[in-house]
Amino acid sequence: MTMPNPIVEWPSINSRSRRLFVTLLVGFGMSLVGFPAAEGADHLVVEGAWTRATPPGAKTAAGYLVLRNTGNSDDRLVRIESPVAETIEVHSMTMDGGIMRMRRLDALLTIPAGGEVRLDPGGLHLMMMGLKAPFRQGERIGLDLVFERAGRIAVEMPVVRVGTMEPPR
């Protein structure tokens, strides 16, 4: 080896910076290929999904569920897909001074490592817009949740009576 390595030999980079650079490079590489496969999909558990029957003509419905992350890294819900609605997003609902407001979440929903996120009536919900057909009590609505790390998870939501406030047992 007679040719000097340009990075190693660059005089303005001291050895600590060089080590940091190499560490970052390796970390970046691992983040591209290593981690998503390492943990697999089973760190994310979707539980207690449900939705309500919709009145005739209603074009929207709200879905509720619990997302639990048993892994060591945060995960994020990237998108929700289902043939039953044109668009499904995570919305928040707030009640302030008797005024109800619903908003799409600005950022992707993060499920913290070792934590859970609950979508319950009166708070966060899956906002299903542009329903192709009304939801009828007793049906099951299928949708796919796509997570940044856990990938795609299929979920079935039983349809319960309109006005229900608690998840079905």
């Binding site: 309500r52 919709t54 009145p55 209603a58 419905a61 109800m100 009536p121 817009m129």
Partner: peptide, 10 residues
Amino acid sequence: FTSCPDVCPT
């Protein structure tokens, strides 16, 4: 309104 998924039907 009828495009309200939570508060109104409830």
